[in-house]
Amino acid sequence: MTANYLETPQGRRIAYHKTEGAGPVIVFLGGLKSDMEGTKAIHLEAWAQAQGRAFLRFDYSGHGESSEKFEDGCIGDWHEDTLAAVAALTEGPIVPVGSSMGGWQALLLARAVPERIAGMVTIAAAPDFTEDGYWASFTEAQKAELDAQGYVELPSDYMEPYRISQRMIEDGRTRLVLRSPLALPFPVRCLQGTADTAVSTETALRLLDHAECEDMRLTLVKDADHRFSDEACLKLIEAALEEVLGVS
């Protein structure tokens, strides 16, 4: 199926697929360097279609079929892309489903447009990872390299090395969500695998403890990894969505 495109106010070209249906609109927010063709996004789109529910998946700039280069992007750019997609392509209440970095994006979205959000599901959410993951783990040599050439390269378990720019680190510091009050006045379901080597259970517990939310639950899944996309994990995501959507 051919993607549609949206031009953001910043001039970036965002690829997306949208399914019409009943609201709230489920908005899938992918992880760092992943795209809207991933297992979870495609599975949830089919699940939403089977239920007659509205669904949106898209590629941030520098990801998948969208414009720009990954190396030039940062958390703030992808937040702008998310805001643009939600504003232009959805109406009424939405339910973000944020995977990894998309979990951070979902929390930024909740801070920006809380009145639009009816519920939220996160999968291995990685809020503040540029500071607490990357910067906190950099050696003095890596910090010097970042300062000298504007980027460092980090190995990945899933693909070619990530090139992490100084802009990503510095912009990330302006988007942190675990250092100040985080109000989530809607149902939230968080899913986390205990065998995840990219996002720790400590991060999931920190988010649970920090957020101001009257209906927030964290499910730890023994031996599930960061992909969280086998059949059992996909069923858990469906169940979490049904809970926040109020489906009995």
Score class of each variant (00 low, 15 high):
Tyr5Ala: 03
Leu6Val: 03
Glu7His: 13
Thr8Asn: 07
Pro9Ser: 01
Pro9Leu: 01
Pro9His: 05
Gly11Asn: 06
Gly11Glu: 08
Ala15Met: 08
Thr19Val: 15
Val27Arg: 08
Leu29Phe: 08
Leu29Ser: 03
Gly30Pro: 10
Asp35Asn: 15
Glu37Gly: 14
Gly38Phe: 08
Lys40Gln: 12
Ala41Val: 02
Ala48Asp: 05
Ala48Arg: 06
Ala50Trp: 11
Gln51Lys: 15
Ala54His: 11
Phe55Gln: 04
Phe55Trp: 05
Leu56Trp: 01
Arg57Pro: 06
Ser61His: 04
His63Val: 06
Ser66Ile: 10
Ser66Phe: 03
Ser67Asp: 04
Ser67Lys: 10
Lys69Ser: 15
Phe70Asp: 02
Asp72Thr: 12
Ile75Glu: 03
Gly76Ile: 04
Asp81Val: 01
Ala85Cys: 15
Ala88Leu: 05
Thr90Leu: 04
Pro93Ala: 14
Val95Lys: 02
Ser99Leu: 06
Met101Ile: 08
Gly103Ser: 05
Gln105Tyr: 00
Ala106Asn: 07
Leu107Lys: 09
Leu109Ile: 07
Arg111Asn: 05
Arg111Gly: 08
Ala112Lys: 09
Ala112Asp: 10
Arg116Phe: 01
Ala118His: 04
Thr122Asn: 03
Ala124Met: 09
Asp128Glu: 01
Thr130Tyr: 12
Gly133Thr: 11
Thr139Ile: 05
Ala141Pro: 01
Asp147His: 13
Asp147Trp: 06
Gln149Asn: 00
Tyr151Leu: 14
Pro155Leu: 07
Pro155Asn: 04
Asp157Phe: 14
Met159Gln: 14
Met159Asn: 14
Tyr162Arg: 11
Arg167Gly: 01
Ile169Val: 12
Glu170Gln: 15
Thr174Leu: 07
Leu182Val: 02
Ala183Trp: 07
Leu184Ala: 09
Pro185Ala: 12
Pro185Ile: 03
Phe186Cys: 03
Pro187His: 03
Arg189Gln: 03
Leu191Gly: 00
Gln192Tyr: 10
Thr194Leu: 09
Ala195Met: 11
Asp196Lys: 03
Val199Asp: 00
Ser200Gln: 11
Thr201Pro: 04
Glu202Leu: 14
Ala204Asp: 00
Leu205Arg: 14
Leu205His: 15
Glu212Arg: 13
Glu212Met: 12
Glu212Trp: 06
Asp215Lys: 05
Leu220His: 07
Leu220Gln: 12
Val221Thr: 15
Asp223Phe: 07
Arg227Asp: 10
Phe228Thr: 01
Asp230Asn: 15
Glu231Trp: 10
Glu231Lys: 13
Leu234Asp: 06
Lys235Glu: 15
Lys235Gly: 14
Leu236Lys: 12
Glu238Asp: 15
Ala239Cys: 09
Ala239His: 13
Glu242Leu: 09
Glu243Lys: 15
Glu243Gly: 01
Leu245Thr: 00
Leu245Asp: 05
